[in-house]
Design a protein around this nucleic acid. Sequence first.
DNA 1: TTGAAAGCGCTAACAT
DNA 2: ATGTTAGCGCTTTCAA
Lengths: 348, 348
Amino acid sequence: MGVKNVGIRDVAKLAGVSVTTVSHVLNDTPQMRVAPETRARVREAAETLGYGPNRAARALRTNRSGLIGLLSEEIATTPHAGRIILGAQDAAREHDLTLVIINAERGPHDAAHREEVQTLIDRQVEAVLYATMYHRRVSLPPNLQGVPAVLIDSTDRAGIVPAVVPDEVGGAVAAVTHLVEAGHRRIAFLNNDDDVPATHERLVGFRQVLGEHGIPIDESLIVQSPSETLPGYALAREVLARHDRPTALFCYNDRMAMGAYRAAAELGLDIPNDLSIVGFDNQELIAANLFPGLTTVALPHYEMGAWAVETLVHLLRGEAEYKLLADKPTRLDCPLVVRGSVAAPRDR
Amino acid sequence: MGVKNVGIRDVAKLAGVSVTTVSHVLNDTPQMRVAPETRARVREAAETLGYGPNRAARALRTNRSGLIGLLSEEIATTPHAGRIILGAQDAAREHDLTLVIINAERGPHDAAHREEVQTLIDRQVEAVLYATMYHRRVSLPPNLQGVPAVLIDSTDRAGIVPAVVPDEVGGAVAAVTHLVEAGHRRIAFLNNDDDVPATHERLVGFRQVLGEHGIPIDESLIVQSPSETLPGYALAREVLARHDRPTALFCYNDRMAMGAYRAAAELGLDIPNDLSIVGFDNQELIAANLFPGLTTVALPHYEMGAWAVETLVHLLRGEAEYKLLADKPTRLDCPLVVRGSVAAPRDR
DNA sequence: TTGAAAGCGCTAACAT
DNA sequence: ATGTTAGCGCTTTCAA
């Protein structure tokens, strides 16, 4: 029997007041002045009885379920979704909101997860968080109209829904700066070849840092492949086979970096002394288990989840404007996580 | 606004019947005979109005929230929790139940997650799923008494709550059998050194297979260390340095296997031709990204999640007996996932 | 085979 | 500063 059978009237009786007063006190109803002495009595009564509100009754009365839906792609595949959940959950608890999570398979192209959104709506959530597994642009399902929503790790093609995404440029800047400051000047960028924001923006960051440091950009050191381990390996082999091989590799993600580790091992190159490597994503399972540990850039999944709930709450309370937020996605920091894969280049 | 403002009375009006009848029809109330023709009219009316029940009202009236709590450790750290969530969710949806997930940090020793359970209870869940991140014995928090509960991936020290765990012995048997059938007779077991069920039971499976095949057990090939990449590496180096080195390694988990891969690479041993390796856990991020792909044993996380919800539903309906289930944990299959790390030994 | 009506526990408009 | 009371939308008992 979850919460016991104590109701607001039991508390009222014990405190010797009316249910109204109890309600006012327990909810801190604004503009309702209750004698401090009465407040205390009510609080105490509630405490001794172990009173907890019946959420169904409250929801019925106020027409607010206290539920927030989180639609997340591929919960099971990477820990990224987990961190979003965590961030969202902590923020939700802060506001006494309950998070209802629903998984969505990453569909063939742009299925938009109409059905999953509907499930959430049927559950009477007050708002929905829509989280994708990697930073991209999406078209929202039509039934998401009419429910307050916030996008996590993606932006709305229609530009109508508030969104929060990683600061990809900033992350790349942090990574490459780290390399440059270690003394590297010949740095290859093993980039992804998908047409997604991360591909373009990380490249922008890469160029920016070299530019700022007056390092000429060797275009042949910017190479692309699918962002998997094996293609990353192949790319690394290629780039490291050159007689003027780079002293450092900036990899689009940790999986490609994992491939680069293998390439280095096969070529007898010691990491970090013969070759420095920086990844992106901070996938613990990979980054922390490689040897030496992979220095990489963390995606702000936790923070995005928290930001999204926080924003939703403001939106629901009418304290924030949709248009203002939807206008331009909020970008959150991608901090560098230093492990052991970067050192000064052996010689100049 | 989520579900529109259509209520049961709107449906009643449109169908020309009473709300009572609508309720009976839409809920298929047993033993309530309604004229088929009326049923149809009601259904149609509900359909055209896009009616969906107000869950809060229903919950208030029936005193059943329709919520199931899932308390899971370390949601963010491994994909394992994700698969449990998925399984639980699919099963929950089947029964029109909503899953409320809550994360619990893995505390110092046996914090028992009292607070998280309370949060769930405060949310008025009808029952709770208690999932740990690895197979072990737990002491349940006292406030979990009185709420129907099922344990996932752990067993109750008090033996009072139904539980579902992986069939560790079976998984080890599958792994080692695979090796033996490939022709291996000198197989090392890189085991974990924690005192958890998996450690003991996988060893049981290991011995069992060798025994069944009449292969003498060389105790010096059974070695232990913490189940991380680096200790796995060290163990592998050690065992592979022997002049009579084994032709195959059975690793306690994929992380240790990852360490073994590095050891093999450093020793110039080709996997799988010079050395076969089988892991455990099927952590995609590792197993699928190693080269060659790691043959390993999958933990039935999805299945355990689904089983738990299914069982909870039976329990709630009074269709199943607590004692029967709590008596002995249910063990679910750990299937072998074949990738590319096993081949016949080079020579006998 | 169908309908009328009570009431689940709470909030809030309206008294006092 | 505190109390009375109507009703949120639904299920379910009882009556017809």
